[in-house]
Computed example of a mutant assay.
Amino acid sequence: MRKTKLAVALVAVSTLALSGCQGVFGGSDKSGSDGPITLGMAIPMSGSSSAIGPYMKNGAQLAVDEINAKGGVLGRKLKLNVQDGACDPKTASTAANKLVAAGVTMSIGGYCSSATLPTLSVFNKANIPMIIPAANSADLVSQHLPNVFLINGTGVQQAQSAVTWLTKQQAKRVALVDDSTSYSTDITKRTKADIAKAGGSMKTVLHESVNAGESDYSSNVHDIVSARPDFVYWTGYYQEGGLIIRQLRQAGYKGKVMVADGSVDGKLISVAGQSTAQGVYATMTETPDTMPGAGDWIASYKKKFGAEPGPYSPQSYDAVRVAAKAMKDAKSTDGKKIEAALMKIDGFPLFSGKLKFTADHTLTEGGFVILEVKGAKFTLADDLKN
């Protein structure tokens, strides 16, 4: 059923992106300008999460080019302005201010939640709507800012997915490990609460926080192993995750490991070591190669960029499409009118399904699945393939 619904959504996505599009993106512009409409994107192009940046940039650029080839939005072409947020709060704030100074109409960036958080007020003060494709901490919407919209599942939904899988795997003793960032601690906190609510024989035996950016986690690993878990859930990013997985195995840990979506990247496998990473699970919104019916879109991406799409390429592609639809529906590039149009969207097809925002500006459905490391990549877990 899930695959059927997703395949239907992908057909609709392809139809909208590649057909005439005049009915979707046409209309009269109320802004009085005939220059390009600029979309801003603050994403990690440097730092430990820099592998994700090109995936997001390329996904967004593919949507921009497809829309422009069909006439643009409100009779104007779209333009993408990418600034490096480096997954660092200070750098991301600087990037956001650069985008505001450049006159962007909307923001479609945001990968690390801790770096995205300080950009919210920057864009809000400038009356710039934000469609965030990747960052998903509940802290992003806790301020109830009218300009902030998430098109990735939230930490609430990811925690629920994690506990459902832990239950299916008959986990008894779970160790939760985060990196002290907003995104990571949000997931561990909610997972711990959901485990308690689930009752039964499963319990949290350890909640450990590590310092991001270190190379030796032996002290944390000792604490984890000493707690005797049969399942470790790491909710931070791939660089530290890879090191912790490697050091856990070196310390003799024989249980199962699962990581959150910030660790779903081939770099985790290379840092941990391919043989060591085998069988590691992940809670993740679907990646291009796990999406049934995404072959044509993947082919278009590969033809344009000469490389495979990766994590958050589809979400970034969709962020541009949602931005374009909202401006068309609003018949304007005014931020407040765009925000109102975003809240009225009902059934617009994304890779994750049909879009409708909740009152908190999050997805009605989270769309998380379980991936598993096989060989040199993450793929849909065996138990979900039938």
Rank of each mutant, 00 (worst) to 15 (best):
R2K: 14
R2V: 12
V13E: 02
S19F: 02
G27T: 08
D29N: 14
K30P: 04
T38A: 15
L39Q: 02
G40D: 06
I52W: 05
P54T: 05
D65P: 02
L80M: 13
V82C: 05
D88G: 07
A92R: 09
V100E: 03
T105S: 08
T116Y: 06
Q143I: 10
P146D: 15
Q158K: 07
V163C: 07
K172R: 14
S184V: 08
D186Y: 02
G200D: 13
L206A: 15
A212I: 12
Y217A: 09
N220G: 10
V221P: 08
R228F: 02
W234D: 01
M258S: 13
V259A: 05
G262F: 01
G266H: 04
Q274I: 13
S275M: 04
A282M: 10
T283P: 01
A299H: 03
K303E: 08
K303R: 14
G310P: 04
P311G: 12
P311A: 15
A319S: 13
A324K: 02
D329Y: 02
A330K: 00
K337V: 04
K337A: 14
A341I: 00
D346N: 15
P349C: 03
L350I: 03
D360G: 07
H361L: 11
L363I: 07
G366K: 00
A376V: 03
